[in-house]
Nucleic acid binder design. Structure first.
Lengths: 150, 150
DNA sequence: ATATTATTGCAAATGAATTGCAATATCAAT
DNA sequence: ATTGATATTGCAATTCATTTGCAATAATAT
């Protein structure tokens, strides 16, 4: 099983002279347990039930820190242009993955693809650019919503 | 050569009982002439030199309308997470295209790929979802910045 | 236990984008 | 050309997600 987010965070904090607080621990646990790709608001609402004194800006600060440490990845999907969603799926360790968002239920499906390397290398050799990362998002209707269509 | 944005807009406006104003015409011309993928602010700054009474909210309203009519496409790129950039490259008519953004000079390169259809169909058949559109962004360093690296 | 200082909660600020409204300008009908 | 109906504008105020300054609090090393 993958290394827990809290463990990874603790290691980095130690290096940086940072501190593991109860708030951080709670937020990290929530991000990990919440399926899908929650927004800051959603994480706050969920964590706040457990610790009612937890503040929204602490959530934002933690999320920003995690992003800077590359422990999570922020995404913006089309429909909800304004708010960020956070992806706790370990980056680096396991293979790159991409996303599909259902335009009806807004659910997100992750997938990977062997073809991507090819697209990258074709682009690189054609333009002389070096590609470090790729973000691919499909939009459409998921199997579930196709069945129960109104 | 492709159909001018102003012409397309005029057709749609006629259908909708809308009006082609001097402001709109100016904004449309600017979007078309500005290379790259300008932000609302950039379009405003540029158009404002020609018509100093033009207001920023008119630019936003026009951009939103054009987006709703699918005449332009909004994008968000990683580095500048908060503001939208607009892509005037005709959608629908010509083939889908994707983007590369240089992390140094922030320039955007457009490209297309035959492989994408394959990725789409593999994903569709694996999940039973229907895919309507795809957004792919590469991040890295462009040829120019690789040479003149500091 | 204590001192140091990273982190929190809170409230205020930011920045991009949107909106309400009175004034203005476009276009169709005369 | 003139007119009238109303779509669109400019302006200011507002929204919404996110960030930030600061005094109070709490985590860690000693």
């Amino acid at each position: 099983m993958p290394i827990k987010l809290v463990t990874q965070a603790e290691t980095i904090l130690k290096e940086q002279g940072g501190r593991m607080t109860s708030q951080r621990k709670l937020i990290l646990e929530k991000i990990e347990s919440m399926s899908g790709h929650p927004t800051a608001e959603e994480i706050y609402l969920n964590a706040n039930q457990e610790d009612p004194t937890l503040n929204l800006s602490t959530v934002y600060r933690t999320l920003r820190w995690l992003t800077d440490q590359s422990l999570i990845t922020p995404h913006r999907f089309d429909e909800e242009r304004r708010q960020e969603r956070f992806d706790a799926t370990l980056t680096g360790t396991n293979k790159d993955h991409y996303h599909f968002q259902c335009q009806q239920c807004k659910n997100i499906i992750e997938f990977s693809s062997d073809q991507m390397e090819k697209i990258k290398s074709i682009f690189s050799s054609q333009t002389g650019s070096e590609v470090f990362s790729a973000e691919l998002v499909f939009y459409g209707v998921c199997a579930n919503c196709r069945e129960n269509r109104s």
